Amino acid sequence: MSAAKTENLNIAAFDPMPSPDEIIARVPLTERAAETVLAGRRALCDILDRKDPRLFVVIGPCSIHDPEAGLDYARRLKKVADEVADTMLIVMRVYFEKPRTSVGWKGYINDPYMDDSFRIDEGMERARRFLLAVNEIGLPAATEALDPIAPQYYGDLISWTAIGARTSESQTHREMSSGLSTPVGFKNATDGDLSVATNAILSASHPHSFLGINGRGVTSIVRTRGNRYGHVVLRGGGGRPNYDSVSIKLAEQALDKAKLAQNIVVDCSHANSWKKPELQPLVMKDVVHQIREGNRSIVGTMIESFIEAGNQSIPDDLTQLRYGCSVTDGCVDWPGTETMLRDTHRVLGESGALHARMR
């Protein structure tokens, strides 16, 4: 009698995936893009080290689904980024992977055609091409690291990484973060618990060894040095925002207790704006007011912004998609985005608050 089958009982297929080296060979890093990535990382590290007094702003669509609209947005953003460069470092939000509460579209890498065909092999290459184009425009890029293998495919094009509220507690993501080449922002848990993020920062700052893949796609023991640029991202939770001055003070105390640098990023979206994109400008104004009044721990903000306001459902007929409108969380529209950034620039420039942060 043959042995009973005991593995892969719920696996339908193993489809081949190109290795990271193969994808990178098809879409190689250019000199211009490399300059943007490295300059973005250096500036972010300098802000976290208090060598640069500017505020960094991670801003862009909730998720990328249409590369044409995404690059249209990037070109617009670059013009404003140059205008406000003396007070803010603008980093474009380029999210390809979407964690779902239950089910739903998982993002451009997982399902680039938005038809449940799940051509991850094509999605990965397209995502890399998009990131390359953004960096060649001159904008550093930020993303959320969700799949622990994905950074091997496009990590060389990322300047800032977020670990989401659902994964900050994950040991897998803490280990992965310890080896990333970028500063990493860990979000507080969906219930508002901040200890998840502080513990993640501590864990990621240490060396780890874990299973992963190398550039050839070979399963490997990945040994990391630890990442000293972990920091907390406040995104609200547990039914309330946490960007107000009292919440910021409590976060500062929690970081101090954990013997961590008081580096705080405020996510103007999610629970901090009750998932109402029209409230994001109010959150930004409050944060800027705190900086103007002398706060030194807030180093960055996050904003969900696109060409059109709000969001849309994915229709069966994809030709009916509205151009430049999010298919995931709602966003501030482009005129609102320009106003937010220029108003912030004016207040920070006039108040002298940024220079005080260096004293």
Rank of each mutant, 00 (worst) to 15 (best):
W105K: 07
E293Q: 12
W160Q: 04
T87V: 13
S181W: 11
L71G: 04
D286Q: 13
E31F: 14
D343S: 14
I47F: 11
R216N: 09
L9P: 02
H206D: 04
A200W: 13
Q312F: 14
D317L: 14
A145L: 03
V233C: 05
Q320V: 06
R75P: 02
D21T: 09
I120G: 00
S19R: 08
E308K: 15
D52A: 11
E136Y: 05
V218Q: 13
F130Y: 15
L202N: 04
D156Y: 11
D116T: 12
R296E: 01
G215V: 02
A261R: 13
S178W: 09
G107A: 10
S168M: 02
L282F: 15
S178P: 01
L71Q: 03
V218I: 12
P20Q: 01
I158C: 04
I59Q: 06
A204R: 07
Q262E: 10
H355C: 14
G123N: 01
G107Y: 06
V222R: 07
D52V: 12
L48N: 00
L321N: 04
E252M: 07
R240K: 15
G155R: 05
R126L: 13
A197I: 08
L180Q: 02
R100I: 05
K51H: 08
A258S: 12
R235F: 01
P335F: 09
A309F: 14
D66E: 00
G239Y: 10
R50S: 08
V80E: 01
L202G: 09
F186C: 05
E144S: 07
A43T: 14
E122Q: 02
I264N: 02
L321I: 14
S351R: 08
T337G: 01
D15H: 12
V327F: 10
A133N: 01
S177W: 02
D115M: 10
G123Y: 00
K5P: 03
V218K: 15
V288F: 08
T101C: 07
V218N: 10
R216E: 08
L255F: 14
M114L: 15
R216K: 11
T337V: 02
I120P: 00
A353T: 03
M17K: 04
A25E: 11
G336Y: 11
